[in-house]
Design a protein around this nucleic acid. Structure first.
Lengths: 342, 342
DNA sequence: TTTAGCACTCTCCATCGTCGAGTGCTAATA
DNA sequence: TATTAGCACTCGACGATGGAGAGTGCTAAA
């Protein structure tokens, strides 16, 4: 639906007022803060139109107006093309962390979530790559003690994962090397998830594997290539509680309950995995009931063209979307670059 | 200070009433719930005495009484020797997790914190061993690509830590093996923290090390043996918000701000590191101002006789201390056992 | 088409008075 | 002497009341 330019400006004015300070926005306030050259009465008429069209709503008769989710959506979509807010401090700070933590993507993601929340004053969320998308580079087996073996997984993305498993104590380090070489050559380049499935299928066949080393290799694989959802880092809960939006105690409880279950966040971020650029989910657009009063801005970071994980911001629907979008976008871009340097 | 038996019973009765439901406890309620064979008037007199001695307090004239931190302290110390509540479900559940996660202490600690909060309905906290107490077993260096080397640290506690660092690209895997063997033999058995200090001292001498491999080894060590505080796992925020104690929004904010800064928790748990058995810190006893309205029950888990890390419960001062103590105690004991099986 | 004026609506907040829980004190009792 | 019944008193919780203020919708004039 198209709005004429003036109506649009009024809508945006209301939204900006509301983002700056919660509480219904009155016609007089709009005329004061923005110079439309119109009187409150005219603004009132326009606001009345906007309400009829569903972009604004009144909490009760004779109160000011509040943007609806539809109003936000229109605002975000219109603003998308406009120039982004570039925060110098943000770039510098992020760069500093980047240097410091180049070596460890998990530590970096932890820091990045703090950064996101610090800059946006909302909740920062980052997610590390999961088994479905990381591909195996090679595997190393190191005899640890007796029957214990340390398994070191190298992925193409520069992640390392390790695990201790038990094997036949009779296996020598030389045997382990052969097994590792076998697994590496056999599965290199495939995603961990694929490998897991292949191994399960292989073992299900129950044919006796002639080579006992291969058999041992399969046993090790089935122990190592389990599904693992990727870590989620969440920061800024206290940041968000300082907002006047969270004066309601039940709202806080609801939010915390949702946030604490990281699976929910994973699901949510997975949904945007294939999209290009920052995605915005506003309030009721959210597929999850628990989150229908919050908004999410999220983007994926990639390795080459393959999406690896996601970063995002969670806040009230009354969120500074433009700022959030640029922060998320920059962060995702940075991580993408970081992965390509490797 | 000694209280005569009857006075003590009344104190405990008040505390138990208060633990079950917050809000001042009146004399009539005490006579109804406990059969002292005394009238409310007598109980009133006793309660008045207890107030004078500092074990109880009145929020305002003509309200019931509320236990003070001193009252709780007396209660906890007296009850210490009594038999512990043993929760069958708890043992079973913990055992199940234990089996599942035997291999990875970090994953286990994560689960354990959830368990602690689930059982106690307060906040569960667990802390993994830090560099100050974990001792090096050996180190492995694996050439990854070009100048990148994966460093795998094995500790005596069965922890593995890995890291990618950059080295001279000319170093072959054979060189790396020699360096790893050198480091392992040189530093094995020392804590990571000790090693870090030794390396710093060594490098500070600035004498040219004749052996270039040794020099390279030192460079690698200084990159790898950095201070790292050990992970903290916190669960049950939403659990605790359901309590009537947290109807005050500022209290929630305060708590979250404290909890979110994990360094604070680390410091707190470190304080109890050398104590034997579960420790209880009640409200104002807490050295940290931010936590003076909360109580903490915590215990260390050990490897042999060396304390490795801590588990604990954070809740309101109106906490079910006996239950919390037994839950914490059991959990710590379990982890200790788990480490000794290894 | 815009604007000034005005009556109307609704929330917020402070005030007030009632209700009930619980105390402290005193005098009676075992 | 220790305990108890009785009673006046205190204080917070809660609901009703009413005025102030912000903001609207409508109408008529510019």
């Amino acid at each position: 639906m198209m709005l004429d330019e003036r109506t649009k400006q009024v809508l945006f004015a209301v939204i900006q007022c509301y983002i700056n300070a919660p509480g219904p926005v009155g016609s007089r306030v709009v005329t004061k803060k923005f110079s439309f050259g119109l009187s409150p009465a005219t603004i009132r008429n326009i606001m009345s139109d906007l309400e009829e069209m569903g972009y604004l709503q009144q909490p009760h008769t004779s109160a000011g107006r509040v943007p609806t989710d539809i109003g936000y959506r229109y605002y975000v979509d219109s603003m998308r093309s406009e120039k982004r807010l570039i925060n110098k401090d943000f770039l510098l700070e992020l760069n500093r962390k980047l240097e410091l933590l180049k070596k460890d993507i998990n530590a970096f993601l932890d820091e990045a979530s703090k950064m996101l929340s610090y800059l946006s004053h909302y909740i920062g969320v980052t997610m590390s790559p999961n088994t479905g998308i990381t591909t195996l580079d090679r595997i190393e087996l190191i005899k640890y003690r007796n029957d214990k073996v340390a398994v070191i997984l190298f992925t193409d993305e520069g992640l390392i994962r390790n695990r201790i498993i038990s094997v036949d104590a009779a296996l020598s380090q030389r045997d382990l090397n052969r097994i590792a070489a076998y697994i590496s050559s056999h599965f290199s380049g495939r995603t961990l998830e694929e490998i897991r499935k292949m191994v399960v299928k292989e073992l299900a066949r129950e044919t006796v594997l002639c080579d006992s080393l291969v058999e041992e290799a399969m046993r090790i694989c089935s122990a190592v290539f389990s599904v693992s959802p990727g870590n989620v880092y969440i920061s800024g809960l206290s940041e968000v509680l300082a907002l006047p939006d969270f004066c309601d105690i039940d709202r806080i409880k609801e939010l915390l309950k949702t946030i604490e279950d990281k699976h929910i966040i994973v699901k949510l971020l997975d949904k945007i995995a294939d999209a290009d650029g920052p995605q915005v989910i506003i309030g009721s657009e959210n597929p999850l009931d628990e989150m229908k009063t919050f908004s999410i801005v999220a983007a994926t970071y990639k390795e080459g063209s393959r999406p690896m994980g996601a970063v995002g911001i969670i806040g009230p629907t009354r969120m500074n979307y433009l700022q959030a979008i640029s922060i998320v976008d920059l962060t995702a871009t940075y991580i993408t670059e970081m992965l390509s340097y490797k």
